[in-house]
Design a binder for these strands. Structure first.
Lengths: 225, 225
DNA sequence: CACAAACATGACCAAGCAGTCATTTTCAGC
DNA sequence: GCTGAAAATGACTGCTTGGTCATGTTTGTG
């Protein structure tokens, strides 16, 4: 699903050298681990050190730190897309929705950097936003099937499911240290709300929306990092 | 509720000078606005400039930036405590719970810095954590009354309500720019889940827990701002 | 082996940050 | 108005960061 996975320079005709390829792969692996453990705040210097390469090499493969982050987060989002795609053909759509949400929350819970990126659209690269929108589309198919079978409310959309997935994780995050499994409690509660059939329609109906723009109410300009 | 609100030095016997008091008040007002608009990442230099005072003056009133943040967030949390306290005597406990959650979400939605602080316990000062724990206790009274009247599930606690409040806000936050009122949708959904009477008991029962520790799964050391 | 292009290196740079401190200004009591 | 203490000032420090670049090294090819 990712577009240019091998070449650093934009569509250079050449095939890259093998040592460059090896370093790139090493860098991606190490950086993914670093971002997961410490968040996107880890310095490029530390990533380079952990990978055993020089800092300049990092910037040779990814012109900015943001590009590196986007590449890694893009892969994770693609993985979520694949999971949703597979589950959208499952026999029991309601169970499939629950399983998708569970899977997504587990990914978030074990990846601090992913949380930061999905939670703050203002620091998302365009490619990441596109990936999330794509994810929403695929999850929409999941939601469609569940809706047809009457397994979820009539007005639940794919975007709802994606937002609630992240929301459930963040609900339990403040006490994740003390209670690492607490998200299951809120997932059960929210899933109950998703299913509820005799309830009134939800306010603020949700058809189309774009993820463009900052996640916070007012943006004064500079974004601390 | 706040303890030492007037004196900068710890329990100095003297009454501070009037210009110092005025500057302190000005600083608090301006900093509160800056944190709300731009998050806790605003530099002390910018806060000082916006207040029309020198940077050194900021550090005279608050020895570290963290102290300034804690003072401001403490006030907001105290305000939430007051709201919960008032509502815990309302006639309709279920409506009171909903009103408290609505009020809290509105505060979060209009204060970027508050979101950052409540969402990341690792960068909370002890006083702020104490304030949040106190808030949970007061909300517990709200929950108790609602439970007694059968207005909410048997197993819903005050901590649940506080966590869900923040969680609902963060659920809608990624698209807050495009849909500023979307949180009402998820609040309705979650409140439905809170009320549901015929549902199975929630997993991961929640009696006591402490907020100590980081909100993320693993902490590698440095915390990006 | 030779050689040019691709790649790696790490010292270096500018910018931004929280926090300090010698100096100057302002306040309050006399 | 005088005076000493409290408060304000802003240049300065030390540190970290993302990103650059001249220099040196590796790789594949003819």
């Amino acid at each position: 699903m990712r577009t240019d996975d091998a070449a650093a320079s934009p569509s250079a005709g050449r095939t890259p050298r093998t040592d460059a390829l090896r370093n790139r792969q090493l860098l991606l692996t190490v950086a993914a681990r670093a971002f997961a453990e410490q968040g996107t705040g880890v310095s490029t210097a530390e990533i380079a050190q952990r990978a055993g390469i020089a800092k300049g090499t990092v910037f040779r493969h990814f012109p900015t730190k943001e590009d590196l982050i986007a590449a890694i987060m893009g892969e994770i989002i693609d993985d979520l897309v694949a999971a949703a795609s597979r589950l959208s053909q499952a026999a029991d759509p309601a169970a499939a929705v629950l399983e998708f949400m569970t899977y997504g929350i587990e990914r978030l819970a074990s990846n601090r950097g992913l949380c930061e990126v999905v939670g703050r659209p203002s620091l998302q690269q365009a490619s990441v936003r596109a990936g999330i929108e794509h994810l929403c589309e695929v999850v929409e198919a999941l939601a469609d099937r569940a809706r047809l079978q009457g397994a979820v409310r009539e007005d639940i959309t794919g975007v709802d499911i994606v937002l609630l997935l992240a929301g459930v994780h963040q609900t339990a995050a403040p006490v994740a240290q003390a209670r690492p499994e607490l998200w299951r409690r809120y997932l059960a509660l929210v899933f109950d709300g998703i299913r509820a059939r005799d309830a009134l329609p939800l306010p603020c109906p949700l058809e189309r929306l774009d993820f463009t723009g900052a996640g916070q109410v007012s943006t004064g300009g500079n974004d601390p990092h």
